[in-house]
């Protein structure tokens, strides 16, 4: 399998003009090597994830109810989605959640990573503490945050009254504020997770660049903008994409904090899919909603992908 030393240097990065036949052989070889790297993972991935997802796509065009026959219904499920008020509500709620949660989480977790990338005493403890929300039982999280958000006795509202806000929000009991409360808890829970990724990314920022910038008289903020951020771009891309997808898929937190309520004010897309599938056994219809979610994610991801490519050229 190993390629020879003689061939290697003439690889893509420094393309030397080569005779066409040689080039196509090279291309072929590169393709083979590329695939040989990907294949071990792809075997498992393709069979165990891709195949069921292809089945899911097929099911979105049927009226499958898990048992018995799955009759082809064409685009009927998608047409029904268009007219389904709950679906519309869940899409809007999901977008609302994501629009708040993504920037907030990036800002907080990046800030945290920058802070805990310093050499300070007890950094191991603080890093671990930041990760604890992610591994604490979600029921415990819900109970304690519900206490904090309690409209009448909660510390949050007491503080708000103290600083002169006469009518603080009803948080989880109010249709207007419930989603914001969920965003706050979501950010609190996820920041440790993304902090880990940023911490790993920060290790790639060459110290020399920082030092050079400092010598040039750049302040902390300038160094952050001109050195740290550009070096972090691959990590940032990764975090943004993952965060987008995970925000679009938000499920368990909603389930334990509000169950989609009050009314439908925090109903999100994955919950809609779960209800249609497992509560109402309309798996064909649920699959169509999952496909819609897939395309929402893909569109955003492709945009990020293209933007990232453009920036890195």
């Amino acid at each position: 399998m190993a390629i020879t030393a003689a061939d290697a240097p003439t690889r893509v990065v420094t393309p030397k003009p080569a005779p066409p036949r040689r080039r196509s052989r090279l291309k072929m070889r590169n393709t083979l090597i590329g695939w040989s790297f990907i294949l071990p993972n792809f075997l498992g991935f393709g069979l165990l994830t891709l195949v069921p997802i292809v089945v899911l796509f097929y099911m979105s065009f049927t009226n499958w109810n898990i048992f018995g026959t799955a009759n082809w219904v064409g685009l009927a499920n998608f047409q029904r989605l268009m007219g389904d008020g709950s679906f519309r509500v869940s899409v809007l709620n999901t977008l609302y959640y994501s629009a708040l949660h993504i920037p907030l989480t990036i800002a907080v977790s990046l800030g945290l990573a920058l802070l805990l990338n310093n050499k300070i005493r007890g950094v191991a403890f603080f890093r671990t503490a930041a990760f604890f929300p992610y591994i604490t039982s979600i029921v415990a999280i819900a109970v304690v945050w519900n206490l904090l958000f309690s409209p009448e006795f909660g510390p949050i509202n007491e503080f708000l009254r103290f600083i002169g806000i006469a009518n603080p929000p009803g948080w989880l009991t109010s249709p207007d504020w419930a989603m914001i409360a969920v965003v706050i808890v979501g950010t609190w829970r996820d920041m440790g997770y993304y902090m880990i990724l940023f911490l790993a990314g920060l290790q790639t920022v060459p110290r020399e660049l920082h030092e050079a910038a400092r010598v040039d008289g750049a302040g902390i903020w300038q160094r952050f903008v001109n050195v740290t951020l550009p070096c972090l771009r691959p990590t940032m891309f990764f975090v943004t994409v993952m965060l987008t997808i995970n925000s679009f898929k938000i499920f368990d937190l909603i389930l334990v904090m509000t169950e989609g309520g009050p009314g439908q004010s925090t109903l999100v897309l994955s919950q809609f899919i779960y209800r249609k599938g497992f509560m109402e056994n309309q798996f064909g219809y649920a699959s169509a909603a999952a496909v819609a979610l897939f395309f929402m994610c893909i569109v955003v991801t492709v945009l990020q992908f293209l933007w990232n490519k453009k920036r890195s050229i």
């Binding site: 891709l50 069921p52 997802i53 899911l56 899919i273 897939f294 893909i298 991801t301």
Partner: peptide, 22 residues
């Protein structure tokens, strides 16, 4: 992109086909 795309599909929605497969 296909790899990333699969992350975007909620597991619950293809859990049953996957279960039948396995």
């Amino acid at each position: 992109l296909l790899y990333i795309g699969t992350i975007a599909v909620p597991w619950q929605s293809y859990m049953i086909p996957q279960f039948i497969l396995l």
